[in-house]
Amino acid sequence: MDEQPPQRVRVVLAGGERRPRPEAAAREIEEQTPVGEVLVRGLIRTQLALALRVSLLVGLLFGVQPVLFALYPGAARTEVLGLPLPWLLLGLLAYPVVFGIAWAYVRAAERNERHFTDLVNRS
């Protein structure tokens, strides 16, 4: 985990007595005004587009393997670092690759949320 200077996130539980007044735009979101509706729709669309892009990448990285090895059986016999290529790809490399993609996704998703929060607080 990246242990950057922790950015404190205040979680306000329901029913707190001294809750700060919601910002104007936050109130618009809360009250489902057309402006708030547009803001949230924008965030959902951005996050969904990000998730779909990452899925496409993962689908390509993993999805092509069975077809590739079915079409080119020779490739399956190639040895890399003393291991047959498919064993290396699935047995070893798959895990760091998945982790790396997940790590990059988390950073991007949080960036999207930060932009959204900034946008709401500025307006």
């Binding site: 996130v9 306000v12 329901a14 919601p22 965030l43 929060t117």
Partner: peptide
Amino acid sequence: HAPERLRLP
């Protein structure tokens, strides 16, 4: 979908 730090009630 809204981030918690918006502090929506």
